[in-house]
């Protein structure tokens, strides 16, 4: 029997836009997904089908109206839909990582400390965490002269690589990846692919959205088509 790390069942999500007369946009309708140890699942489907919404729901960044989202945390299952905020914070800190396209950090903090922070939160000393952070930045081809600078002034690709280092430095058992290679050149894309492979090899479960099909086919064990919610066409007509 394979060991599951993610067990999402019958997840439904509708956005209600109160500033547009309460317009209801159903995006997820009865979506279920299970992901096992060491497995990488790529979310696929047309733009607007809800891939990103589903990924954010798994992270409890978006609220869902129905369903359960089981995350295997330490020795048992936590339902992210029912969990209290401090429990979600704990699950994210130790079990569930998220690599987004955009870096959101305190201004004026150095790239090195931004990357080191998750390890510090795991209880590492600042010095030890900085050493590891340096190896991640080096691997992702961020030049050492940039390490002490805040990433606000970095290029888009550099910021994304800082973000990847920050998101992957703590070896969490589950990683959610939203277009991790979107603005990277071929060399850096290859590094990120290798990092994802290493994460799988240590047993992590990965769920990702990969715009680039070559990357997707290299890391994904399985494609999962996020089903179109019913009435989506009607909703689109309403917003048009």
């Amino acid at each position: 029997m394979t060991t599951l790390l993610i067990d999402a069942q019958n997840v439904s999500k509708t956005f209600v836009l109160h500033q547009q007369d309460g317009l209801a946009l159903p995006v997820l309708d009865d979506v279920s997904l299970q992901v096992a140890v060491g497995e990488c699942v790529a979310l696929v489907g047309p733009s607007g089908a809800g891939k990103s919404t589903f990924l954010k729901a798994l992270y409890a960044n978006y609220l869902v109206q129905a369903g359960t989202i089981g995350i295997f945390h330490r020795e048992g299952w936590v339902d992210m839909v029912a969990a209290l905020p401090h429990q979600i914070v704990e699950v994210r800190r130790h079990t569930l990582g998220y690599v987004s396209q955009f870096l959101r950090v305190i201004p004026r903090v150095s790239a090195l400390d931004i990357v080191a922070e998750p390890l510090v939160e795991w209880g590492e000393s600042l010095e030890a965490a900085r050493t590891v952070a340096g190896t991640w930045l080096a691997r992702l081809n961020i030049h050492e002269r940039l390490w002490s600078l805040p990433p606000a002034t970095f290029s888009g690709g550099e910021q994304q690589r800082v973000n990847i280092a920050r998101g992957m430095i703590a070896p969490r058992p589950i990683l959610l990846l939203d277009e991790p290679t979107a603005s990277l050149d071929a060399a850096n894309r290859a590094v990120v692919i290798e990092l994802m492979r290493e994460a799988k090899a240590r047993g992590a479960a990965l769920v990702g959205i990969f715009h680039d099909e070559a990357t997707r086919d290299t890391v994904a064990d399985r494609l999962f088509t996020v089903p179109l919610a019913r009435r989506l066409d009607t909703a689109k007509e309403l917003t048009a």
Binding site: H18, Q19, Y62
Partner: peptide, 21 residues
């Protein structure tokens, strides 16, 4: 009331939606 990133990224109440937007 809720997780900060959830409230800012997926606000539910009309007033919160107005505030975030």
């Amino acid at each position: 009331a809720g997780l900060t990133d959830q409230i800012l990224d997926d606000p539910q109440h009309p007033y919160t939606q107005l505030l975030v937007s």
